[in-house]
Deep mutational scan, measured.
Amino acid sequence: MGFKLLSKLLVYLTASIMAIASPLAFSVDSSGEYPTVSEIPVGEVRLYQIADGVWSHIATQSFDGAVYPSNGLIVRDGDELLLIDTAWGAKNTAALLAEIEKQIGLPVTRAVSTHFHDDRVGGVDVLRAAGVATYASPSTRRLAEVEGNEIPTHSLEGLSSSGDAVRFGPVELFYPGAAHSTDNLIVYVPSASVLYGGCAIYELSRTSAGNVADADLAEWPTSIERIQQHYPEAQFVIPGHGLPGGLDLLKHTTNVVKAHTNRSVVE
């Protein structure tokens, strides 16, 4: 069995187990497998329904001669939608809004960016022009300005110390501490036991640490421990890039980060 097929099978099995364990909360999309990078042309966006009122959005972007996937989250909030992270750029984010209108038909009224990198804030200006209120932590807003990236308009308070959590509509926002970046936030959907790890969490097929220019490698494993301790009931975990899975993604990420750190020390 090929690795790609095995990865998709694991996603399907995880979703099936969740649907059985929580039949009222989960209505997993039966329309197909989780979209992969090879299936999404740059400039297009796919939506994948995880649970009743919960979707991931998947886009792709060219970077350094390669094409990478990027995940975000959409959560229903009454007759409105909360968006977590842009679709990595203005063109993708405009396509995301169009796809949401086509498939869901509810307005996106608020959006949260989970850290300051372009795959999370690139497209904020498109959201703002569409009347979406954009939010991020003060740290993310400051770092985005320093980096020359787009800056969300509103500040999220109460997320300055490791372990801080605040309720934001249908989700809980959690600051686990520094990891992929010093400002990275985690998003949890309690009604569906869905954990969105953003770039602080890796997919299972990833074996290298990737972009760690703004990471705190020493603190990252401790931050992941905080996530595990705060959300032990999480059933569906979405990484910032690639295929979702279960809580095993947290341990896998820790292993990859520690291996990278150990290699760096040896070198």
Rank of each mutant, 00 (worst) to 15 (best):
M1P: 06
M1N: 05
M1I: 06
M1W: 06
G2L: 13
G2H: 15
K4I: 14
K4T: 11
K4F: 06
L5F: 14
L6A: 14
S7W: 12
K8F: 10
K8Y: 15
K8W: 15
K8A: 15
L9M: 09
L10E: 13
L10G: 13
L10V: 14
V11T: 11
V11F: 09
V11R: 10
V11A: 11
Y12M: 14
Y12D: 14
L13P: 08
T14N: 07
S16T: 14
S16V: 14
I17Y: 13
I17N: 08
M18C: 14
I20A: 11
I20F: 07
A21G: 13
S22N: 08
P23M: 09
L24D: 14
A25M: 15
A25S: 13
S27A: 15
S27T: 11
D29K: 09
S30V: 12
S30K: 15
S31P: 10
S31E: 09
S31M: 08
G32Q: 09
E33G: 11
E33Q: 10
Y34R: 10
P35T: 08
V37S: 15
S38K: 07
P41Q: 12
V42I: 06
V42T: 12
V42A: 15
G43D: 10
G43S: 07
G43P: 05
E44A: 12
E44W: 08
V45P: 12
R46L: 10
R46G: 10
L47M: 13
Y48I: 15
Q49E: 11
I50V: 12
I50D: 03
A51G: 09
G53C: 06
G53M: 08
V54H: 02
V54C: 02
W55V: 03
S56A: 15
H57L: 03
I58K: 04
A59T: 09
A59I: 07
A59H: 05
Q61R: 15
Q61V: 07
Q61S: 10
F63N: 04
F63V: 06
A66P: 06
A66E: 14
V67L: 15
V67Q: 15
Y68I: 08
Y68T: 06
Y68P: 03
Y68M: 04
Y68F: 15
Y68K: 04
N71C: 04
G72T: 03
L73R: 02
L73N: 01
L73K: 01
I74A: 05
V75N: 01
R76D: 06
D77G: 09
D77R: 03
G78S: 09
G78M: 07
D79Q: 10
D79P: 09
E80N: 08
L83D: 02
I84R: 00
I84Y: 00
I84A: 01
D85P: 00
D85F: 00
D85A: 00
T86S: 01
A87K: 00
W88R: 00
A90V: 09
N92Q: 06
N92A: 06
T93L: 00
A94R: 14
A95T: 10
L96S: 00
L96D: 00
L97D: 00
A98W: 12
E99V: 14
E99D: 09
K102D: 13
K102Q: 10
K102A: 12
Q103P: 07
Q103L: 14
I104W: 00
P107K: 15
P107R: 14
P107D: 08
P107W: 05
V108Q: 00
V108S: 01
A111Q: 07
V112H: 06
V112P: 04
V112Q: 04
V112E: 05
T114W: 00
H115P: 03
H115K: 00
F116M: 06
F116H: 04
F116T: 01
H117C: 00
D118W: 05
D118V: 08
D118G: 11
D118Q: 11
D119I: 01
D119Q: 01
R120N: 02
R120K: 03
R120S: 11
V121G: 01
V121H: 01
G122Y: 08
G122L: 06
G122T: 06
G123F: 02
V124P: 03
D125M: 08
D125Q: 10
V126M: 05
L127C: 01
L127I: 03
L127T: 01
A129P: 03
A130F: 11
A130W: 09
G131S: 09
V132D: 03
V132R: 02
A133C: 07
T134Q: 01
T134L: 03
T134R: 01
A136V: 04
A136I: 04
S137M: 15
S137D: 01
S137Q: 08
P138G: 09
P138L: 08
S139G: 11
S139N: 11
S139P: 10
S139I: 13
T140N: 05
T140K: 06
R141P: 04
R142N: 13
R142Y: 13
R142Q: 12
A144H: 04
E145H: 14
V146L: 13
V146Q: 13
E147L: 13
E147C: 08
G148N: 10
N149L: 14
N149D: 08
I151L: 08
P152V: 02
P152Q: 02
P152C: 02
T153F: 12
H154K: 09
H154S: 10
S155V: 14
S155K: 12
E157Y: 10
E157V: 12
E157R: 11
E157Q: 13
L159A: 03
S160E: 13
S161D: 13
S162T: 10
G163K: 05
G163V: 05
D164W: 05
A165Q: 13
V166P: 04
V166G: 05
V166C: 05
E172P: 01
L173Y: 01
L173M: 07
L173D: 00
G177E: 01
G177K: 03
S181F: 00
T182A: 12
L185H: 02
I186V: 13
I186M: 06
I186E: 01
V187R: 02
V187C: 01
V189S: 03
P190N: 08
P190Q: 09
S191V: 10
A192K: 10
A192Y: 07
S193W: 10
S193V: 07
V194Y: 03
V194I: 09
L195I: 07
L195D: 00
L195Y: 00
Y196P: 02
Y196M: 08
G197N: 04
G197I: 02
G198M: 06
A200F: 03
I201K: 04
I201R: 03
Y202G: 05
Y202C: 04
Y202P: 05
Y202T: 15
S205R: 08
R206H: 15
T207C: 06
T207V: 13
S208Q: 10
S208Y: 09
S208R: 09
S208T: 14
S208E: 10
S208V: 11
G210I: 04
N211V: 07
V212K: 04
V212L: 05
V212S: 07
A213L: 13
A213V: 14
D214T: 03
A215M: 03
A215H: 04
D216L: 06
L217T: 09
L217E: 06
L217I: 13
A218Q: 14
A218C: 07
A218D: 14
E219M: 10
E219K: 08
E219F: 06
W220V: 02
P221T: 12
P221E: 10
P221Y: 06
P221R: 07
T222V: 11
S223E: 01
S223Q: 01
S223N: 00
S223T: 12
I224L: 06
E225G: 12
E225C: 06
E225Q: 12
E225K: 12
R226H: 06
R226D: 01
I227G: 03
I227S: 04
Q228I: 10
Q229T: 12
H230R: 15
Y231M: 02
Y231E: 00
P232H: 08
P232T: 09
E233W: 10
A234W: 02
A234V: 08
A234T: 08
Q235M: 09
F236D: 07
F236V: 10
V237W: 02
I238W: 03
I238K: 01
P239I: 04
P239Q: 03
H241R: 02
G242H: 06
G242I: 06
L243P: 09
L243M: 14
L243D: 15
P244E: 04
G245L: 02
G246Q: 11
L247Q: 11
D248Y: 09
L249E: 02
L250I: 08
L250F: 08
L250Q: 04
L250M: 07
K251A: 12
K251D: 14
K251L: 11
H252Y: 06
H252Q: 05
T253E: 01
T254D: 13
N255Q: 12
V256D: 05
V256M: 08
K258I: 09
A259W: 10
A259E: 11
H260T: 11
R263S: 14
S264Y: 09
S264H: 13
S264I: 12
V265T: 13
E267Q: 12
